[in-house]
């Protein structure tokens, strides 16, 4: 009974968020919903990055690699022609799982060796492979459409409202799944790895086993986001999938929201998407990216804990004031 109450209590913020998201389509115009759709995808990508980097401290610069690989594989297999035989066109329910599998397989092949080694190796390698993959995708023009990428891909659903429901559903499914992992002992160990990996190893835990699990979860999430995003947009190109700004958006969303949390990246994804959308008309081209990079830099520098950190500090302060002293359920 007590257990049941505590689990409802820990779910309460999810319930609030879900209710707000359910009401939204009835009160805002489709143009607003389109921004929400982008924000949902950014939230998925940010959660994926956070599962790997925010929790364990192994900073990945390769998430566009995972996302792009998933998107490209699904796009190439479902594309209605344009490239040479064998002329395979597969339905989406086949190509999308294959895309996700490609993200996991490709990620494990290229990134996992570097995770056996401590230190910044993982980060360097992930960035290096991101650049190489984008070169390969451009070079393999016959398959991938080269610089221009692949267009007129099949959609899953059409219309702003339907896509809103779809992306919101996926986003919450991913979020709750990751949250259940994060609040279990797995999340606990991953955070400990970020703080002192040697000590975790001395506690009789294979840190590699936990890092690998976090990576696979992250890659699955990135793959899910990648395939759904590709078939929402109906196109994929190197400029969209492998651009640094895309990578920057993912990382900044997480950092702004709060690393090592699940709600943080969701909030950050929404914040960053609405922020960039609202500056679209104010500044142009390089100026906008410049301003955006500088703002991102300022946030990382002055508030590395993100909004989650701020809210958490304030809430803890109030509770401590009310009850006088810390309680067990507050510190975990």
């Amino acid at each position: 009974m007590v257990n049941w109450i505590t689990s409802v209590k820990s779910f309460r913020w999810w319930l609030v968020a879900i209710v707000v998201m359910m009401v939204l389509p009835f009160i805002v115009p489709p143009s607003f919903l389109r921004i929400c759709i982008m924000a949902n995808f950014m939230a998925i990508f940010a959660m994926s990055w956070d599962m790997m980097s925010g929790y364990t401290g192994y900073v990945s610069f390769g998430h566009p690699f995972l996302i792009g690989l998933a998107g490209y594989v699904s796009a190439m297999l479902s594309h209605q022609g344009g490239f040479q035989p064998p002329h395979i066109v597969l339905p989406l329910y086949v190509t999308m799982p294959l895309g996700i599998a490609a993200a996991v397989g490709g990620g494990m092949l290229f990134f996992l060796p570097s995770m056996r080694v401590r230190g910044p190796y993982f980060s360097l390698i992930s960035l290096a492979f991101l650049m190489i993959l984008s070169r390969i995708m451009i070079a393999a023009g016959a398959m991938t459409g080269g610089d221009r990428g692949l267009t007129s891909l099949p959609y899953l659903v059409t219309g702003a409202v339907n896509n809103y429901w779809l992306s919101t559903g996926i986003m919450f499914a991913v979020a709750i799944g990751l949250w259940l992992v994060a609040r279990s002992d797995v999340g606990h160990v991953l955070k400990a790895i970020r703080m002192d990996e040697d000590v975790v190893e001395s506690s009789g835990l294979s840190t590699y086993r936990f890092k690998r699990f976090a990576f696979i979860l992250s890659a699955i999430t990135a793959g899910i986001g990648g395939v759904f995003y590709t078939h929402y947009m109906g196109s994929i190109s190197p400029a969209g999938a492998f651009d640094y700004i895309f990578l920057l958006n993912i990382i900044v969303s997480t950092v702004v929201g709060g690393m090592g949390t699940i709600l943080g990246p969701i909030f950050g994804g929404y914040f960053i998407t609405f922020f960039t959308e609202s500056t679209r008309t104010l500044l142009e081209g390089a100026w906008r990216f410049m301003a955006y990079s500088l703002v991102a830099l300022a946030i990382v520098y002055f508030r590395p804990g993100g909004f989650y950190g701020i809210v958490h500090d304030i809430a803890a302060w109030f509770r401590a004031k009310r009850r006088g002293g810390l309680q067990y359920d507050q510190v975990t």
Binding site: K191, M195, S206
Partner: peptide
């Protein structure tokens, strides 16, 4: 070498966590 962000009891608990993802979940 304590984990600087964890209270003592959570720090100690890491040492009792099973080395298995499925059992942790």
């Amino acid at each position: 070498r304590p984990y600087h962000d964890l209270p003592v009891i959570e720090d100690l608990r890491i040492s009792t966590v099973p080395d298995s993802i499925t059992r942790c979940l």
